[in-house]
């Protein structure tokens, strides 16, 4: 990542990819990249953090980096990963944003599978993504300093500017996704809804593995008469509070699946964020946090449906824990 800082600071369109311990190893530099407003794009193939040594998929790596100040998107299938890649550059390089963008991809269950993908041409890419024109760059003929000391009298202000920019990037994210949809006929939203119109209960997922398995579980539960829908979170940072409140207000219960655990904390990171978004609001739903699919553990749709049914029953009884790890062998 330090090499990327140098590349981007000199005006290069810059990309890299990482995963798991590799992301953890570059943790320090991730904050520097975003604070220096370098529009680097990085694919993070989400995998578990050791120990015990585990190379398989979960979201422990990205969730440990949620506060690095990057735009963070999730691709839920191969087509999304392909399509969102040029979108990431377009978002990052927009003069209203100028922030790095991380595209998260479930390790192995998405990154290493063969899928049918509709490709685009070089002309399509060139029309959608113009050549990169850096707002500023290191140039020996016009010397500037990047990343200098920020003493106490300016440090807070720099953090406010950074936060304002990340929150405001939400507008550009939507604009870019809309533009892509108009050009190529594949539309993406920061938050996707499935069967939510009449749903009393919502399944809330992030990432492709639980997202697509969740679709099957929702279909099965609908066939049994449960009024359930699904919400897939594609934009993790900036967190889309407005969409979340609009979608979840007035529902009876939300079952949140997290593939990461805040050890000794409030449970799942996504559930924690949802609770923060809904806190104190009238008609807030019961929020049940389930932790699953850690370190590559499979979760089958039939198991997911059973877990959801159990959670909904407990929500009706009004007694449920802050979070629960499901599928744990006794």
């Amino acid at each position: 990542m330090s090499a990327c800082v140098g590349l981007s600071a000199t005006g290069c369109r810059t990309f890299t990819a990482t995963s798991s311990q590799g992301l953890a190893l570059m943790h320090e530099i991730l904050f520097i990249v975003s604070a220096m407003r370098l529009p680097i794009v990085m694919a993070t193939v989400n995998r578990a953090l050791s120990a015990p040594i585990n190379i398989w998929g979960d979201l422990s790596d990205v969730m440990a980096n949620r506060d690095i100040g990057w735009v963070q998107l999730f691709g839920n299938n191969g087509q999304e990963v392909y399509d969102l890649t040029p979108c990431c550059f377009k978002i990052a390089e927009d003069r209203r944003v100028l922030l790095p963008v991380m595209l998260n991809i479930d390790g192995f269950t998405l990154s290493h599978v063969v899928e049918p993908i509709e490709t685009l041409t070089q002309q399509d890419f060139d029309d959608f993504l113009p050549p990169y024109e850096p707002a500023q760059r290191l140039d020996v003929n016009q010397p500037i300093s990047m990343g200098p000391v920020g003493p106490p009298d300016i440090f807070t202000e720099t953090k406010k500017v950074h936060d304002d920019a990340l929150v405001a990037s939400r507008i550009v994210v939507n604009e870019v996704l809309d533009d892509f949809g108009r050009r190529f006929g594949r539309s993406y939203r920061a938050v996707e809804e499935y069967q939510t119109d009449d749903a009393d209960v919502l399944l809330f997922t992030i990432g492709g593995t639980l997202g697509e398995t969740g679709h099957t579980a929702v279909d099965a539960l609908r066939a049994r008469g449960m009024k359930i829908g699904q919400v897939l979170l594609r934009l993790w940072r900036p967190f889309p509070f407005d969409d979340i409140r609009r979608i979840f207000t007035g529902r009876k219960a939300v079952i949140v699946y997290d593939r990461a655990l805040s050890v000794g904390g409030p449970g799942g990171p996504v559930a924690s964020e949802l609770r923060a978004a809904m806190y104190g609001r009238p008609d807030a739903p019961a929020i049940l946090s389930l932790i699953a699919a850690l370190g590559g553990r499979d979760v089958r749709a039939v198991e997911m449906a059973e877990q959801i049914e159990n959670a909904v029953r407990r929500a009706g009884e009004g007694e449920y824990p802050a979070y629960e790890m499901v599928g744990v062998r006794e």
Partner: peptide, 26 residues
Amino acid sequence: RRRIGIEVSIAQAEAVKLCRVDGIAA
């Protein structure tokens, strides 16, 4: 434009190439 079967990590690498990226740290 074509519909092909391809490993997702390779598909993304192809997309990155089409983005005319100047530098990749790998």
